[in-house]
Nucleic acid binder design. Sequence first.
DNA 1: GTAACTGCAAAATATTTGCATCCTT
DNA 2: AAGGATGCAAATATTTTGCAGTTAC
Lengths: 138, 138
Amino acid sequence: MEEQIVDVLKKSQLSVTDSRRKILELFLQADSAMAHHDIETKAGEKFDRVTVYRTLQAFLEKGIIHTIPTPDNSVKYALCKDNCEQGHHHDDHVHFICKICGITTCLDDVHVPEIKLPRGYKTQQTEVVVSGICKECS
Amino acid sequence: MEEQIVDVLKKSQLSVTDSRRKILELFLQADSAMAHHDIETKAGEKFDRVTVYRTLQAFLEKGIIHTIPTPDNSVKYALCKDNCEQGHHHDDHVHFICKICGITTCLDDVHVPEIKLPRGYKTQQTEVVVSGICKECS
DNA sequence: GTAACTGCAAAATATTTGCATCCTT
DNA sequence: AAGGATGCAAATATTTTGCAGTTAC
């Protein structure tokens, strides 16, 4: 785990610091998406609010994590899988939000379909967020 | 227009007040989704910030408007078309965000596809947001 | 040693709540 | 007249910025 963390940070040309290590670890361990607030508290350690903002920002820019847009517009973050490069987020999986437990997950095996747009529109990225009831809650 | 506005409000059991009339008019005239900020200012009139919050909240609850989740998690609102009832938002169209002009639109003619989820998940709502370049900007 | 990162304070924004007053019905 | 809606003030919460001190490389 520790190796993996350092590896990811180095590959992204981010210096390896304590907060980054710990926050990245949170993401690697998490099985669902986290809100800023989760990260700030969920950690056994307490992180400075500002550091969390900046760390998330850095991770986003480097393509380590991605945001998940939700219908209620709360902000959630989750790890990007393989094919994300700096600045180019290539998310091709569907996100799921459970209306009961509120947990947001990446369904890595469910791919976003291709959407046919009217003439003149160019697709760069497609986000699909499904809300409903998850495995655990049904 | 005026009739339509009053009609919508009455059908939603909302009392017909000045702010509601004017804000609803904004939505009816708008050809793209609006952020809270847009509504607050774009109006020739100046609305009280709090009134805008409460009006949007009421419209949301009554199913007059819906929110559009965006990758950068800014909050945008747009009119619901027909089949939205109070509390039940049945949006079946795709949203489009232009990365150049930033305009967010409802592509009413483009329907969201059905997504096949893993066993155990139940779909209640599917949101599709496509980012790219719009007709005007390409 | 230098550049980058952190943590604190504080500024700037955004959102929510309470309450007296005003408007709809 | 009664209930709901508004607008103002103020409480909260969220996000951004500046800067001095610390850490990574």
